[in-house]
Design a protein around this nucleic acid. Sequence first.
DNA 1: CTGAAAGCGCTAACAC
DNA 2: GTGTTAGCGCTTTCAG
Lengths: 335, 335
Amino acid sequence: MKDVAKRAGVSISTVSHVLNNTRFVSEALRSKVEHAIEGLAYQPNPLGRGLRKGKSFTIALVLPDHGNPFFVQAARGAQELVRQQNYSLITCNTDEELDQEAFYISSLLQRKVDGFIIAPTQGGSGNLQPLVETQTPFVVIDRYVDGIPADQVVSDNRTGGYQATEHLIQLGHKRIGLLVGIPLLTPIIDRTEGYRQALQANGMEVDENLLSEGCSQIEEGYLAMESLLAINGLTAVFSTNNMMSLGVLRCLKDKRIRCPEEISLVGFDDAEWATSISPSLTVVAQQPYEMGFIAAELLFAAIESKNDKAKPRTIRLETSLISRESTAKPLNSGR
Amino acid sequence: MKDVAKRAGVSISTVSHVLNNTRFVSEALRSKVEHAIEGLAYQPNPLGRGLRKGKSFTIALVLPDHGNPFFVQAARGAQELVRQQNYSLITCNTDEELDQEAFYISSLLQRKVDGFIIAPTQGGSGNLQPLVETQTPFVVIDRYVDGIPADQVVSDNRTGGYQATEHLIQLGHKRIGLLVGIPLLTPIIDRTEGYRQALQANGMEVDENLLSEGCSQIEEGYLAMESLLAINGLTAVFSTNNMMSLGVLRCLKDKRIRCPEEISLVGFDDAEWATSISPSLTVVAQQPYEMGFIAAELLFAAIESKNDKAKPRTIRLETSLISRESTAKPLNSGR
DNA sequence: CTGAAAGCGCTAACAC
DNA sequence: GTGTTAGCGCTTTCAG
């Protein structure tokens, strides 16, 4: 920067002001400076700037599983806006573990990250406390947290669960199993709630035996499905999580149970493999890319206006049912 | 830091030396300083440190597709070591586009990132030139680049291709199709080479009609498979890329061609869905986690000893065939 | 064995 | 309109 100033024959502060458009600079000097910058291929050093302004031009994305296609898409959405704003994005993976989450948050806070987008591991919203204490802007995605002073962007999971269940009911299914993913996660809770509401809206009882919990893993889905199969008259299953859907498929395959003839299956979240497998999978799709993008928008808005405590907003994204081959009328009905 | 010094009644430089173990400090002062640090919950500011030392304690991971399970695992491996070293990891997604790659490299360079791990988009190794010019340490993964002064860690793709093909030959297949992914990528080139060698080693001719190119996308795999199906006597296919494998599956499904009875299929890379689908997929597995981890090890080694131009090393990771249900003897043979 | 002080690259009063 | 200058938080000579 000193070199640029020298070469342009101006003061170092003029260079700074040209760079940042932070006060008027006469056309003559401005162009001299710009030439010098060009000539020296000067690039401002973000560390110096960051040190001075107390920020790092970095934002953090804290995810429970960055291998999950859902979060991959969310990351893309966020990345898009972040790079557009000339910030960098640091992505972290908590593996759904509270202490990893705490570790990442504190270490990123120390790094003076300017904001967080976080899909918090549930059961310890205490991890978010340091963020509000240090006044670091953040926005929550995917998992809703009650009473937190931050914007949130989540899917309308209740409706998603409703759509899945209603779809099965319309096809004529009477006994519909529910595979409940990690039961503490608000999306899972809401999808379950949607399931109950759809049944009730159609005048059907909720049989608690038809709910089977697992942990959003393939193996857990397998086991949960296995236990559901013991139940009489089961003709359909709604899996609230796509890893569990894979477990269900594996289970049906092992037991040589045909889908959709014997068991219909609805999954949650679309995935690349969903249309390639046989039968292709009926799912409730979310909008992860939009989720990440909108979260980034809200975050930057919060960063700009750190002062005014606008009431935190919650944005709820629509879900949509995509009907494919894994759902059909039950064998002995509809006739 | 000033506060810590004041509270401990020592100079600011002593605090620094305690923090970094960079010169001897008497037990008495050291403990005073440590108390003060504790009491004030002091955390060193990486920006100040970075500015002074000309580094950022950040390393960059530049990937062509951070949604691909292969790279997700590689990212995990790298992340593991990076956080262990108290560095941060910035992950970028080039979508296999040269100009995005160039953009990320230059913007990360400007940020004074301390090192890169990069799976370069092929066809323009020129993008790596800024790294060697600025003497920024980097290591290449997945895609081998000739004559670059950097460590590289890749899979033994030639052997991988050989294993897949040999497996099919052993089962009795005579006409084995090859789905070639992005043809410029060295892993694809090497897998293809392995395919040729396996055929030749078994005294079989390579029929160029059996090679079908695509672009490592589901749709491309579908189309490539479709064209192969026109060929007489085809009983097996080796897909050099897992996205294309999904395309193959979709194609077989559409045309109601049974796998493995009519067509055997070997994929490349293991994936979560590979064991859940029916038939489960025979694949050649790589070791992506190890790839990321080892790359990080080499990178830190290079960062430590920036001076000595040790001859760059290339590490080749073993592949292994995992035989599942999608491969079997051809219908009219083996009897 | 410890302290004083210069300076990394930049921004923003404060002067003129 | 523009230049001078004091730090941001830290490391590291150089003195003692």
